[in-house]
Design a protein around this nucleic acid. Structure first.
Lengths: 151, 151
DNA sequence: CTATCTGCAAAAACTTTGCTTACCC
DNA sequence: GGGTAAGCAAAGTTTTTGCAGATAG
C-alpha cells in the first residue's frame, strides 16, 4: 500500500481548507516543500527551495506561511540550541536523532517509544505529545571526519 | 543524605577550575543563579536575577558566561520554539515537561525513561544522551484559567 | 465583495563581536 | 606579567510588523 507515498497537492490543499487557510500558490508550494523533505529546513532553506517555483516569493511570506501552518497544526517546529528555527512537515508521530557535530536531524520511529508516558502524573501535568530526542553523532560524523560534515 | 542539597559555591568554583575557566565574581554568581533555580531562565532572566548581587553586571557578560558554561558542559540549553534561549543548570539526567500554555518547563525523572535507546541503531547513529520532552498542560493551566497563567 | 494573503521595507528582538580596561592565576 | 574576562557599545542575525495592492472564496 502507499504507506510511504507523499501526499498529493490535492491532499495538502484539502488540509489547508479544513484548517480554514486560504489556498494560494505560495502557501501550497511552501507546504509541499516542507512535506517533501526530511531535512527539517529553516525558513531560509524553504525560501530557497521554493523560490524558483514561485517567482517573486518573499522571505516574509515564508515566515508568515510557516507560522500559519504551524498554528493550524499542519507542521511543527523543532527548536535546537544556537540555530535558526527549523520546521518539520512530518505529521506522523516520530522522534529525532540530532547529530551534535553536523546538526542533522533524523526522524525515527520506535515501537518502544510510542507508548511513553510518565509513570506518575507530575503536578497535575496532562500530557499531550511525547518527543524523544536522541543526541549523538550521525553515521557520517562518527566514522568519517570528526569535523563538521555538513548541516 | 544530602542528595537534594544545592551545591556550595565552593563546589561551583571547583567545577569552573576543572573546566579551565577562571573564577570571577560574575561567573560564580551567574552559575549559582542557574543552579539554584528550576525555572530554565533566559539570559535576560539570569541578568535580572544576578544584577543586584553583582552591581555593574552587563547583559553581554551574561551571554558570554552562559556560553562558556555551556561549552564547558556545566550547564545546558533547552531550546523551545518561538522563545529566547533558555538555560538549565541541572546536571543530573532528567527530562522535561513543557506546558504548551504558559511555557513553563518542569524537570522530571522517570526510571522507565532512563534506559531509553533506539531498539535498532539507525544509520550508524551513535547515541550519547536522550531527552524526553512531554508536551501538555501544567496543573495550573489545566484546571485554572485556560488562558496564559505565566511563563 | 470581503477577509486574507502577498511583497516590500522598516523595525524589533535577540545575540554576537570588537575593543579597552581590569583582574585572576 | 600574561592571558582571560568584564563592560560597553556597535554590529549582525533572525524574526516580526505595518501597510497597500492583489486574490481566494
Amino acid at each position: 500500500m502507499g504507506a510511504f507515498a507523499p501526499p498529493s497537492d490535492a491532499a495538502l490543499v484539502e488540509r489547508c481548507r479544513v484548517a480554514g487557510l486560504k489556498v494560494t500558490p505560495q502557501r501550497v508550494a511552501i507546504y509541499r516543500a516542507l512535506v517533501a523533505t526530511d531535512a527539517h529546513p529553516t525558513p531560509e532553506d524553504v525560501f530557497h527551495a521554493v523560490r524558483d517555483a514561485v517567482p517573486g516569493l518573499s522571505l516574509g511570506t515564508v515566515y508568515k506561511t510557516l507560522d500559519a501552518l504551524e498554528a493550524a497544526g499542519l507542521v511543527a517546529q523543532v527548536a535546537l540550541p544556537n540555530q535558526a528555527k527549523r520546521y518539520d512537515g512530518n505529521r506522523a508521530p516520530h522522534h529525532h536523532l540530532i547529530c551534535t557535530v553536523c546538526h542533522r536531524i533524523v526522524d525515527f520511529t520506535d515501537p518502544a517509544f510510542d507508548a511513553l508516558a510518565p509513570s506518575s502524573p507530575i503536578g497535575g501535568f496532562v500530557a499531550e505529545r511525547v518527543e524523544v530526542r536522541v543526541r549523538g553523532r550521525c553515521g557520517a560524523c562518527d566514522e568519517g571526519s570528526p569535523e563538521e560534515n555538513h548541516g
